[in-house]
């Protein structure tokens, strides 16, 4: 269920939190479902147990999971993060745009970079669009 990318800019506990959020949004995790135990995550990823505990605590703080002492960690019955329902039109235009990008010769890495820069640009400096335009 989890993957960890050590060496990326994102703290590991945040990566775990994001992955749970993603799974919730994509509907892979349903309300009430049980998450792996801390020990299971530690065993499969070889990460610090404190990190996993921190991730679960953060998720609980965000209201996404409920920790039941002695039993486990469960997705909250009504988490404030519903399954994403991207409209078919949105998904369709995304698929078409990706195809066009590929046809223009962009690699997958470049496509991802573009997306990141644009997303960064909408929250940060307005140079982002200029910079993004400079990416070949």
């Amino acid at each position: 269920m989890f993957r960890v990318d050590a060496g990326s800019g994102v703290p590991i506990y945040r990566q775990l939190v994001e992955q749970v959020r993603r799974d919730l949004m994509l509907g892979r995790l349903q309300p009430g479902a049980q998450l792996p135990s801390v020990q299971e995550v530690v065993d499969s990823l070889a990460v610090n147990p404190n990190t996993v505990v921190k991730a679960f605590a953060e998720l609980e703080h965000q209201g996404l999971v409920v920790r039941r002492q002695g039993v486990g960690t469960f997705v909250a019955p009504s988490p404030p993060l519903t399954s994403m329902s991207a409209s078919p039109r949105l998904l369709g235009s995304l698929a078409r745009w990706t195809d066009r990008a590929r046809q223009e010769g962009l690699t997958e890495e470049q496509i991802r970079m573009l997306l990141e820069v644009v997303l960064d640009g909408s929250t940060g400096t307005d140079d982002a669009r200029r910079t993004a335009g400079g990416v070949a």
């Binding site: 960890v4 050590a6 060496g7 590991i12 990823l45 070889a46 990460v47 610090n48 404190n50 990190t51 921190k54």
Partner: peptide, 10 residues
């Protein structure tokens, strides 16, 4: 070994 430190250490 920095990579393993990041996973293991807090």
């Amino acid at each position: 070994a920095v990579a393993e430190l990041e996973r293991a250490c807090d």
